[in-house]
Design a protein around this nucleic acid. Sequence first.
DNA 1: ACGTCGTTTCGGCCCCGGCCGAACCGTTCC
DNA 2: GGAACGGTTCGGCCGGGGCCGAAACGACGT
Lengths: 233, 233
Amino acid sequence: MSLARFAALLADPTRAAFCTALLDGRAWTAGELARHAGVAPSTASEHLSRLIEGGLLAEERQGRHRYVRLADQTVATLIEDLTAFAERGAPAPRTLREATRLSAEARARTCYDHLAGRLGVAVADALLDRGLLADEAGLTVTEHGRAWLAEQAIELPPRAGRRGARPVVRSCLDWTERRTHVGGALGAALCRTALDRAWVERIGSGRALRVTPSGTRALHDLLGVRPEATAAR
Amino acid sequence: MSLARFAALLADPTRAAFCTALLDGRAWTAGELARHAGVAPSTASEHLSRLIEGGLLAEERQGRHRYVRLADQTVATLIEDLTAFAERGAPAPRTLREATRLSAEARARTCYDHLAGRLGVAVADALLDRGLLADEAGLTVTEHGRAWLAEQAIELPPRAGRRGARPVVRSCLDWTERRTHVGGALGAALCRTALDRAWVERIGSGRALRVTPSGTRALHDLLGVRPEATAAR
DNA sequence: ACGTCGTTTCGGCCCCGGCCGAACCGTTCC
DNA sequence: GGAACGGTTCGGCCGGGGCCGAAACGACGT
């Protein structure tokens, strides 16, 4: 596919809205996306087919539902990068609602399937500070780190690290912080754990997260993440 | 600017052709681009205005000429990334001309203002092997490296490394090799030196480079780059 | 001063593609 | 079986935007 044809997939407001919504890493149904973007179901259906055809989205049919999600992490990164570029130098948001959403996402959000925003960066820093990760020609999990993960009962997928599977740790550049945070299978496992154990919870239907009181404590006790790092300003 | 409006800039075959051509890092005139893309000068003029308005291109007026180039390195990276994504899984080129061009670009090419392709990766590896660069939380020039650059009379711009100026070394992911090569002010200086001293020369009007015999010798003597790394296959 | 050349502006043409509603299909629930 | 529901297909409408040619503009060379 040519560059132009590919870019055209994201060049429509409705399709762009779909992709932005899907950045939360969850699978949405066709109807949810249609309502979210304010178009008729028939319109949404055609858009989804094109996005899937173009390799940006993956679908999963269940009964009468059509679930779609971003095809993989690289798509999520690409869309975040493009958005960051498009929005650079953008004027301050004009509505309070918008300002609140942006501020919440800057504080803590999901980036496809892992943690981003100040929370994501703080966790990455903590893992490096404690020697659980090392930064030598790319991030790697240390021996110490493996032991810690086992201790915390944070499980990586069985095939993690094998040839062909997704890398265990992948650094991912954060557009709000301009800092790297932890992606890859480890990033996904950490995010899943944080949601499962109610360290964080989703705010509304978007990508923004709130760190719960017990989460604040857990992150501090386990990783030394300072509460200020993720508190509302 | 919204994601959709931004993507729309690249979603037109003519504008995409302009950006791809400009990936060679040089400044082209409006007329050259028009002929290159096969459109009327008036059409090209409108496209250029939109790309500049959108921050993708920078212009410089000289007399009756309008020179344009990519706005900066981040734009070049963005376009290379998008192209790589769009072309993933693309079938083998259908024409001999196309196959030749791709193979030449994979061997050695410019990426905006520095060296890429197998040549770029080989040079980056050589700099690391010889301890002229170190990879510690990002690439940095070592003491040894500074001395070597001075010895070779390869000059960095006076403000290099100062706050606000472009970083001295920036690793840049190569889409053909899936390996990092050297960008930033150092990458630009190395590329300029290689062209000035006729270690490499441009093939035709594109981004592809040929390593000259004296270049092969110089790269081997100075950096230990093996001739096979950049010879035609 | 005059012609040439690179570029820009404008008017007008035309097609691509996004949108909807209506009809249809398959699943689920009663 | 029938009704409700999510999703899809199709036909038709409509606007945006890419294209060109004509005309104008400004720089340059003679």
